[in-house]
Computed example of a mutant assay.
Amino acid sequence: MAREAFEMIAKTMAGLEDVLAEELTALGADEIQIGRRMVSFTGDKAVLYKANMHCRTALRILKPIFQFKAKNADEVYAEIKKFTWFDILNEKNTFAIDAVVFSSIFTHSKFVAYRVKDAIADYFTQRTGKRPSVSVSNPDVLINIHIAENLCTVSLDSSGESLHKRGYRVAQTDAPLNEVLAAGMILKTGWKGESDFIDPMCGSGTLLIEAAMIAMNIPPGIYRKGFAFEKWNDFNQDLFDTIYNDDSGEREFNHKIYGSDILPKAIAIATENAKSAGVAKYIELRAMPMQQYTKAPSENGIIVTNPPYGERIKPDDLFGLYDMIGERLKHVFMGYTAWILSYRKDCFNKLGLKTSERIPLVNGSLECEFRRYDLFAGKRDDLKKTPKTNE
């Protein structure tokens, strides 16, 4: 029997679209097209379930159900009310609306959501005398309306709670790294577990845990309590069970992941999170400042880290911190590749190292850069004398 393919949209963070497209290709998705903070693709129900379970860089997976053009909120209301909502939910279900608006015509996403809610409620009231209830937390059906100028796309949100909420995090430090961004950073480096991995400023351990999951190919959705599609009326439990319980893609990891942080509290939190994710035995954690590294744990490996930028976390001496990071990288981690996410160019300059690659990424609302440094043996002063063509 031919599989029934339909269009889907995977939402992501700016700069991670290409990595998400690669993930979707590996899962068997077709007709992949990269957009802004999103990737559209086609596939069947199995691809929908797999995308939610396996995509490390997706925030949510949407299934568009219809599209229309509207010049005002009354037209939105009228078009929404025309749709056959009985195919999607009934008066006993709960639902919620998520409105995303990029338009000069529609300026208030909450007002759009309100009108969509009214239209669906009135559709049922006029036909049955009853209406489904709105539930903000854990609704049976989550409906997404996306408006770009006058083009309105209505989708079912198959994920529910954002997919960055993996389910393993039991506690967090100040300014924790988003799990989708952490996984995207690691995938951008090309590392898949073939060497040791170090984060010397690990905070609550997000990069370390995502690295362990990537190294062993553990699906990021395995820890979640559930997905929105499990409440859909066409949900196939047997198919989902088969996908959920399939561990044939998991790999052995024969290296080690090392994490440290200056704050003992952060290490305690990282330890709990690693245990919760079931990867604690692969991660070695120590409470120590980066300047205390005197010896690399192995001849070569990769360092991926997200030092403070002076925005949410404010060190006493920000430039001194970056100067120290550059000094330790140069003297202790020869033969390694280091990747650093930061916000300010003058912080990068303080590292005193030559950049070999730079990738724009967004952390929260900050437009950051993710820079690669290939660490060779030699004196740091000699390196500073070389022309900084790439700085």
Rank of each mutant, 00 (worst) to 15 (best):
R344E: 13
D234K: 07
M38P: 01
G326W: 01
A29T: 04
P360C: 14
G193M: 09
K384N: 04
R3V: 13
L239H: 01
P176L: 07
A266D: 12
T271W: 09
T128Q: 09
A113E: 05
A280T: 09
A21W: 04
V112K: 03
I80N: 02
I147N: 01
M290K: 11
R56N: 02
S104L: 09
K50R: 14
N144S: 11
G278T: 11
C347I: 04
A14R: 14
V101K: 06
P139D: 02
E22L: 07
A148L: 12
F229I: 00
S248C: 09
N150S: 11
L353C: 01
K82D: 13
N273S: 06
T386V: 06
R3L: 15
A46G: 05
G205V: 07
R286Y: 12
E194N: 04
K225N: 12
W339Y: 14
E22Q: 04
G378A: 03
E7L: 10
G129E: 07
I88G: 05
S365G: 12
R328N: 09
R380P: 02
K330S: 10
R166E: 03
K71R: 10
Q172R: 11
K45V: 06
W232D: 02
N178I: 01
N273D: 12
A21V: 07
D317L: 07
D98S: 12
V136L: 11
C347F: 02
E4D: 13
K314R: 12
R224D: 00
D118W: 14
N150D: 14
E391W: 04
P297M: 12
I147M: 01
W232G: 00
W339A: 02
C202D: 15
V279R: 07
P308I: 02
V136F: 15
E91N: 08
A2W: 13
A96C: 12
M185W: 04
L318A: 09
I257H: 03
N90D: 15
D30C: 00
A268R: 13
S159Y: 00
A171Q: 10
N52Q: 00
H164L: 11
D30F: 02
N93E: 10
A211C: 01
D157E: 03
A277Q: 03
V154K: 13
Q126M: 13
E7G: 14
L353D: 13
P219G: 05
K188H: 08
L351T: 10
V362M: 11
A51F: 03
Q292S: 04
E161K: 07
